[in-house]
Amino acid sequence: MQWKIRMLLAQQIVNGLSIGLNYALIALGLTLVFGVLHVINFGHGQVVMIGALAALYAAELLNLPYVLTLPVAAAAAGLLGVVLHLAAVRPVVRRRDGHQDVLLTTFAAGLLIHEAVLASRGPAPARFDGIPGVLHVGPLMLTNQRLFIIIVAGLTLLALLYLIRMTRFGNELRALAENEFAARAVGIDTGKVILVTFAMSAAIGGLGGALLAPLSAFSPNIGQGALMTAFVIVVAAGLGSVWGTVAFAALYGILESVLSLTFDQGMASATVSGLMLLILIARPNGLFGKA
């Protein structure tokens, strides 16, 4: 019996890890933008949706195999990120109260994108097949799509680590996150760094959307739920903390999955949200945020 419970627990941890890492990719987009510009991009959910939609179209119209639709998703979402920045962030962020205005402008831009997709292709969800098959390891099982999510998320995070720690752009990004005035003073083109960060955040979010869609189906509403989960994760982890976001997203997925062994799904989510409330009371800047 003990063995059976341990296996059940292990199964839920694996399930939770895969969905948690998928959340991490989506949440990273929010936290990277917050890190350099100290604003929340409420249009990010629709960027995630456009990534999934671009991958779906690449598979349907260009007959690309699923793996090759992922770069298309990242490129389309990255491009949208640039447009979002130029249209909804840059014109208002330097104003007085500009940071609050960005919440509204990005939300409005997201709404426009969502309505445009609804108007052009309707609300119907679409089947989107990822990597087929199931992997069995002893009594544990994991669909190949979930395994693929773990691998792609892991590789993306390593690439991001390299970019932030080992490249000139990473140095500039960190300098900007630390102090924008000082970064400008030493000759960093902060406008360019911000634009590239927006594009990169959106590309990672779009990739997250393309990985998430095969777990259920593509739906024009896929970004709304994803944004809410990502927002909760970045706030509880500590806004701007990249590694905190990844760690907390994985923890979030595992915790929700394991708790659902005892509670129904709604109660499991409510329990995780309750824990987050306690975290924010004890640590107002989040679990991994700077005090």
Binding site: L8, N15, S269
Partner: peptide, 21 residues
């Protein structure tokens, strides 16, 4: 007997594991 969250839930693997048991 399980309940899931309307529109918010995309991952059903945990519930499926419970049902399988």
């Amino acid at each position: 007997s399980d309940l899931y969250e309307i529109m918010a839930q995309t991952d059903f693997s945990s519930i499926a594991t419970r049902i399988k048991e």
